[in-house]
Design a protein around this nucleic acid. Structure first.
Lengths: 125, 125
DNA sequence: TGATAATATCACTACATAGTTATATAGTCA
DNA sequence: TGACTATATAACTATGTAGTGATATTATCA
């Protein structure tokens, strides 16, 4: 039972670790508006293609994104709609924690706006 | 604006990183039932005192726990009640992702049970 | 089949941080 | 004040992984 519990903690930690890198958050954010292929995501993030590919593989491995190949391209999309709820909660907590620092709430409002609802209803199904 | 957005991603990533280490999740889990001092948390986790102290400092720095000194002891408590909602959401997603693996849902049920409600109502105030 | 394009993987470097031991700091009580 | 206890910090090692350039893999189309 203690062993099981440690395995669970390990899994949860890995999940959070998947969200603990700015580039990966940027990738997830880019997918709010719908699916995109690797080339598009490479341009959007400004990273090398190899790097984007690696991050996407990690996100997919943790169930945060899903992929489907069409032609020579591979299209990625959000794997679980509740991922954004998670991010939005964190944004809220950070905004609260840093309350007083000018304009931080607005900064986060960016990622929690109308875009989300569009993407959510798409991903929910 | 692009710069601001990158700063926001950095902050969110740091917050998730704080949750991305099993020992820290164990610490937060131990605080579900109420506040504890460093010595108690050291015993509960089985780590060295120095290590626990470092993890607690990091959690405090990110607003996940709060501390108050009484005598020679320092007592830590949950900084934000919604932290557990975050963890429980992740547990739910993982359980969904691994659905089929025997007994995994029960494994996670451990950390999302009645204890949470007690701790939440305490921390909410 | 050969050329081209898109993605994934490999081998590598650089850096951040988890964990450890030893020590410093601060509070309590005789 | 000195001994004792609890916590924090410093210095260090080991390890994981983000990022890169080069290359392999796979699909498309002439």
């Amino acid at each position: 039972m203690q062993k099981l519990d440690d395995d669970a903690l390990e899994l949860v930690a890995r999940y959070f670790a998947a969200l603990a890198v700015p580039v990966r958050l940027k990738l997830l954010n880019a997918l709010r508006e719908g699916e995109r292929n690797v080339g598009e995501l490479t341009r959007l993030t400004g990273c090398t293609q190899a790097n984007v590919s690696k991050h996407l593989a990690l996100l997919a491995h943790n169930g945060l994104v899903a992929k489907s190949a069409r032609g020579t391209s591979v299209y990625y999309r959000i794997g679980d709609a509740s991922t954004y709820r998670l991010c939005d909660m964190v944004c809220g907590q950070i905004a609260k924690h840093y309350a007083g620092k000018a304009g931080l709430e607005q900064m986060f409002a960016l990622s929690a706006g109308r875009q989300r609802d569009k993407a959510l209803s798409r991903a929910r199904r």
